[in-house]
Design a protein around this nucleic acid. Structure first.
Length: 710
DNA sequence: GTTCTAGAAC
DNA sequence: GTTCTAGAAC
């Protein structure tokens, strides 16, 4: 035992000023418990006492009773205590939790490192206090490992922190080492991989302390927090409000606020403006801009922005800016209330709830995230895990809420959309510092992604109005689990933006793939790159042209992401796109009569929103870099516009190419010679002057030599 | 879709 | 040693 004598004995210091903590280390031999204690003691200003069973008996191994006795004495002396023994099951830990008074905080730090690592460390070490090293150590670890029982809050811990690797351990050391005499840490479970006890209590008092204590030291980043946005809405708040604050303010009138859930409604809090400290003015601009963009796309569905606090600045800013833009208050409103109890306490039926989560999409961190996971129950964690393991900033995942969730019955919630916003808080992971260029971009993506997710739930199902646009119609929630097997599915399985749970055209679109879609939906916001805009199409120059001239004719119709969405009824639109492309090709040929053009579509585009390529056949461009670039324009993966229209007219459907064409050889489109690699092909293309016989014969080429027929 | 880069190919 | 590809990350 090592007693720190820096502190005064009982009576010498007022006990009220201290926050005494018992930290029960839990871990196999070799998991790093002793190192943890030594490191914490080394960097800490707090008087820690390490109670180590391996050395408690005059440097030799002692008993549990001895540990309890020494720990009790240390607490009497106003110290905080680190219990350095394995404590692998509930029974071994129970007596330590009885020590100290009601003011003493009981923490567990679980060093759940891989058994193999513990064995390897134990075997290799020398001079171990308990003489557990060499071959015997491996035996002991193997014997002990199956008996390991992870701690739960219900055992009596205020806080449990799980560490699974050295990085986690380092963070925990930093956290505990930086606690001064009066500091405390948020209560609850932090960092647990799989849980059955992940409940966070008392975090409200932690945030209150942060606000009110003038000398409170900022608490270091919590590994269990994982960047979760705390917000003004805490789990504690949610608990306290229950049964107390039934009254809520509707800051903009909501038509039919007590309406049945037949009108789909998304309730969303402000993303990133709470714990992630995003600038409120900038955030409110983005919220209103995104609401304006999406409000016309969700049919009769509604958006409601929710904040727990009266006098919320962000709510007020959004409300004012939305009013200035004349956004229909029947479609978009703000609401003061508890997002977890909108129907029961606020009379507001919202079937979809947005949750500003952390990158691991896990409970914790306080704020809305903690409250949502708590209210929706463990089934939400399970349902979430089936859909996604993690999120990148700007992404979201739509999770149908199982009917077994208490939220489903009590609040009528059918879906939760987890969304991760940008973090500007240096105390949280992945801080953007003051880079608001990036921050605004990500926040815009986050809202766009969220609203796309909502739109996918109230998805349009094929109905088109007279403008050719698909009218949104609410389809009752569908809990059918569908797994997207499309090649574009991100590795994490995250559904970005457009989650379509119906039909064979299911495809998810990453944030980077949304650029054309955004241009098509709001060409006015992209005037610098738009060459032409009409009711049905937008023409732009490809940002990364693969030839001297490379334009895109983008359809403006909702619900037409790619050729996979096209059917016979789209023939007029396809013809219009072709005519516009032809017009531009002819215009460019007038400027340079050596150009030859081909018009066509990629069978499986990378970018969302149906677009026609108008590309000159020189393929002279620095942006033509890899095999896929070439093959996507020079194999049947590229479908000529005339042929697409013809197929639609004759068969009513399309035969699309697939990505197997990307395995092909690099054949010159003129002389048909095969080239070993891209640099050599590009070099060859500069000198090959053979005619494009195949294209001419099929009527696919537009050149000064002859007219193109449709 | 692009960029970056490790490692394969030359 | 340089060139090129392919996969990861965005």
């Amino acid at each position: 035992m090592e007693i720190d004598q820096r502190n005064t004995p009982p009576g010498g210091k007022k006990r009220e000023e201290l926050k005494q903590i018992i930290v029960v280390l839990i871990g196999l031999p070799g998991s790093g418990k002793s190192t943890f204690c030594e490191e914490v003691a080394k960097i800490s200003n707090r008087p820690w006492v390490r109670v180590c069973q391996d050395a408690i008996n005059n440097g030799k191994s002692g008993t549990k009773i001895m540990c309890l006795s020494v720990a009790a004495a240390a607490l009497e002396y106003g110290k905080s205590v680190l219990i350095d023994r394995c404590n692998i099951d509930k029974e071994q830990r129970a007596d330590f939790l009885k020590l100290g008074g009601s003011e003493t905080e009981k923490h567990a730090v679980v060093l759940d490192l891989p058994n193999s690592l513990c064995i390897s460390r134990s075997v290799k070490r020398s001079g171990h206090e308990g003489k557990l090293q060499g071959g015997r150590a491996a035996q002991v670890v193997n014997h002990m490992a199956p008996k390991k029982e992870l701690p739960k809050l219900s055992e009596g811990f205020n806080r449990i922190m799980f560490c699974y690797n050295e990085k986690d351990v380092k963070e925990a050391i930093k956290l505990y080492g930086s606690l001064s005499l009066c500091d405390s840490l948020p209560f609850g479970c932090f960092g647990q991989k799989s849980v059955d006890s992940m409940v966070q209590v008392g975090i409200r008092s932690f945030f209150k302390k942060q606000d009110t204590s003038g000398n409170a030291k900022s608490v270091p980043e919590d590994s269990g927090n994982q960047g979760a946005e705390a917000g003004s809405h805490t789990a504690g708040d949610a608990l306290e409000k229950k049964g107390k604050h039934d009254k809520v303010d509707v800051t903009i009138s909501i038509s039919g606020s007590t309406a049945s859930c037949s009108i789909p409604t998304l309730a969303f809090p402000s993303i990133s403006t709470a714990d992630f400290q995003f600038d409120l003015e900038k955030a409110s601009d983005i919220i209103v801009e995104q609401v304006e963009e999406y409000i016309g796309r969700i049919g009769e569905a509604k958006l409601v922005m929710v904040d727990l606090s009266h006098g919320s600045k962000i709510l007020s800013l959004v409300k004012t800016k939305a009013a200035k833009k004349n956004i229909d208050s029947n479609k978009f409103s703000t609401f003061v209330g508890d997002i977890t109890q909108l129907r029961s306490c606020g009379g507001l039926s919202c079937n979809v709830i947005a949750n500003p989560t952390n990158w691991e999409i896990k409970p914790g961190g306080g704020g809305v995230n903690a409250a949502v996971f708590k209210a929706a129950g463990f089934v939400l964690e399970v349902a979430t895990k089936e859909r996604a393991e993690k999120l990148a900033a700007g992404e979201c995942v739509v999770v149908p809420l199982p009917s077994s969730s208490p939220w489903f019955g009590a609040e009528g919630v059918t879906h939760v959309i987890h969304v991760l916003g940008p973090n500007m808080n240096p105390k949280r992971p992945n801080c953007l510092k003051d880079d608001y260029t990036k921050g605004c971009k990500i926040l815009r993506e986050a809202y766009s992604s969220l609203f796309e997710g909502f739109a996918s739930i109230v998805k349009p199902y094929g109905n088109k109005d007279q403008n050719g646009k698909r009218a949104a119609a609410y389809v009752p929630e569908n809990n059918k689990k569908t797994k997207d097997s499309s090649s574009s599915l991100s590795k994490s399985g995250v559904n970005n933006r457009n989650q379509d749970e119906q039909g064979s055209n299911t495809k998810t679109w990453n944030p980077w793939a949304q650029a054309l879609h955004k241009i098509a939906m709001s060409p006015d916001s992209h005037k610098d790159i738009v060459l032409e805009v009409s009711d049905h199409v937008v023409v732009i120059k490809d940002s990364y042209p693969k030839a001297q001239q490379h334009l895109l004719v983008i359809a403006r119709c909702h619900g037409l992401d790619s050729l996979a969405d096209v059917s016979g009824e789209d023939i007029p639109l396809m013809k219009e796109m072709h005519d516009v492309g032809l017009k531009w090709a002819e215009k460019l040929i007038l400027e340079n009569n050596s150009l030859e053009f081909r018009l066509g579509y990629h069978s499986i585009p990378s970018m969302r929103q149906l677009h026609l390529h108008v590309i000159s056949q020189d393929f002279d461009s620095t942006h033509l870099k890899n095999k896929k670039h070439w093959l996507s324009f020079n194999t049947p993966f590229f479908l000529d516009s005339v042929n697409v229209v013809k197929q639609l007219e004759e068969a009513g459907e399309l035969r699309l190419g697939n990505e197997s064409f990307f395995d092909g050889v690099l054949r010159c489109h003129r002389c048909l010679s095969v080239n070993p690699n891209m640099p050599k092909l590009k070099n060859h293309l500069r000198s090959c002057k053979d005619p494009l016989t195949f294209l001419i014969q099929n009527g696919y080429l537009i050149s000064s030599e002859g007219k193109y027929s449709r």
